[in-house]
Structure formats: C-alpha cells, structure tokens
Measured scan of single mutants.
Amino acid sequence: DHIPWITAVLPTVIICVMVFCLILWKW
C-alpha cells in the first residue's frame, strides 16, 4: 500500500508558507 506522503508533507509546506508570508509582511 502507498504511503500518502502528501499528508505528511502538506503541514510542513503550510507552516513554511505561513512563516514566509509573515516575514515578508513584517518587512
């Protein structure tokens, strides 16, 4: 059976995008 890697990667991607947007917003 396949491991849904997207389910494991998606939260990390969302957190990175939120942090990236927060850094851009504070500049």
Results as ranks from 00 to 15, higher is better:
1 D>I: 00
1 D>E: 03
1 D>L: 00
1 D>R: 00
1 D>P: 00
1 D>F: 02
1 D>M: 01
1 D>Q: 00
1 D>A: 01
1 D>V: 00
2 H>R: 04
2 H>S: 05
2 H>T: 10
2 H>A: 06
2 H>L: 06
2 H>Q: 04
2 H>G: 15
2 H>K: 04
3 I>A: 14
3 I>G: 12
3 I>S: 06
3 I>V: 08
3 I>P: 07
3 I>H: 14
3 I>L: 03
4 P>S: 06
4 P>W: 04
4 P>M: 15
4 P>G: 04
5 W>I: 04
5 W>Q: 13
5 W>R: 05
5 W>L: 14
5 W>G: 02
5 W>Y: 15
5 W>V: 13
5 W>F: 08
5 W>N: 15
5 W>C: 11
6 I>V: 04
6 I>C: 01
6 I>T: 01
6 I>R: 01
6 I>L: 00
6 I>N: 00
6 I>F: 02
6 I>A: 02
6 I>E: 02
7 T>V: 13
7 T>C: 04
7 T>K: 06
7 T>D: 04
7 T>G: 14
7 T>H: 06
7 T>L: 14
7 T>P: 01
7 T>E: 02
7 T>Q: 00
8 A>S: 01
8 A>P: 08
8 A>E: 11
8 A>V: 13
8 A>Y: 04
8 A>K: 05
9 V>H: 15
9 V>S: 10
9 V>P: 06
9 V>N: 02
9 V>T: 13
9 V>I: 03
9 V>C: 10
10 L>I: 05
10 L>A: 15
10 L>C: 15
10 L>S: 11
10 L>G: 04
10 L>R: 09
10 L>H: 03
11 P>E: 06
11 P>F: 07
11 P>G: 13
11 P>T: 08
11 P>Q: 04
11 P>N: 13
11 P>A: 08
11 P>I: 07
12 T>N: 01
12 T>M: 11
12 T>K: 06
12 T>V: 01
12 T>H: 12
12 T>Q: 00
12 T>P: 08
12 T>A: 07
13 V>N: 07
13 V>A: 00
13 V>W: 09
13 V>F: 04
13 V>L: 07
13 V>G: 01
13 V>P: 04
13 V>E: 07
13 V>T: 00
14 I>Y: 13
14 I>C: 10
14 I>A: 08
14 I>G: 09
14 I>T: 12
14 I>S: 10
14 I>L: 10
14 I>M: 08
14 I>P: 13
14 I>Q: 13
15 I>F: 14
15 I>V: 11
15 I>G: 12
15 I>Q: 01
15 I>L: 12
15 I>H: 08
15 I>E: 02
15 I>R: 04
15 I>Y: 00
16 C>I: 13
16 C>A: 07
16 C>G: 07
16 C>N: 15
16 C>P: 11
16 C>K: 04
16 C>Y: 03
16 C>S: 04
16 C>M: 02
16 C>Q: 00
16 C>E: 00
16 C>W: 04
17 V>M: 06
17 V>G: 11
17 V>P: 15
17 V>E: 09
17 V>T: 12
17 V>W: 08
17 V>A: 11
17 V>N: 13
18 M>H: 03
18 M>F: 04
18 M>K: 02
18 M>Q: 15
18 M>R: 05
18 M>C: 11
18 M>T: 06
18 M>I: 05
18 M>N: 09
18 M>D: 02
19 V>T: 05
19 V>S: 05
19 V>E: 04
19 V>F: 07
19 V>K: 10
19 V>C: 03
19 V>W: 05
19 V>R: 03
20 F>S: 05
20 F>V: 11
20 F>I: 06
20 F>Q: 13
20 F>N: 06
20 F>Y: 02
20 F>R: 09
20 F>D: 10
21 C>F: 03
21 C>P: 11
21 C>M: 09
21 C>D: 15
21 C>W: 02
21 C>A: 10
21 C>V: 09
21 C>E: 11
21 C>G: 14
21 C>H: 10
21 C>N: 06
22 L>H: 08
22 L>V: 00
22 L>Q: 07
22 L>K: 12
22 L>E: 01
22 L>Y: 06
22 L>T: 00
22 L>R: 02
22 L>I: 00
23 I>V: 03
23 I>F: 04
23 I>P: 11
23 I>T: 10
23 I>A: 06
23 I>L: 08
23 I>C: 15
23 I>E: 06
23 I>M: 05
23 I>H: 05
24 L>I: 10
24 L>T: 04
24 L>D: 14
24 L>Y: 07
24 L>S: 12
24 L>A: 13
24 L>K: 13
25 W>E: 08
25 W>D: 13
25 W>I: 08
25 W>Y: 10
25 W>P: 09
25 W>L: 08
25 W>N: 12
25 W>Q: 12
25 W>C: 02
25 W>V: 15
25 W>H: 07
26 K>G: 04
26 K>D: 12
26 K>N: 05
26 K>Q: 12
26 K>A: 09
26 K>H: 15
26 K>T: 13
26 K>R: 01
26 K>C: 11
27 W>V: 13
27 W>R: 12
27 W>L: 07
27 W>A: 08
27 W>Y: 12
27 W>P: 05
27 W>Q: 14
27 W>H: 08
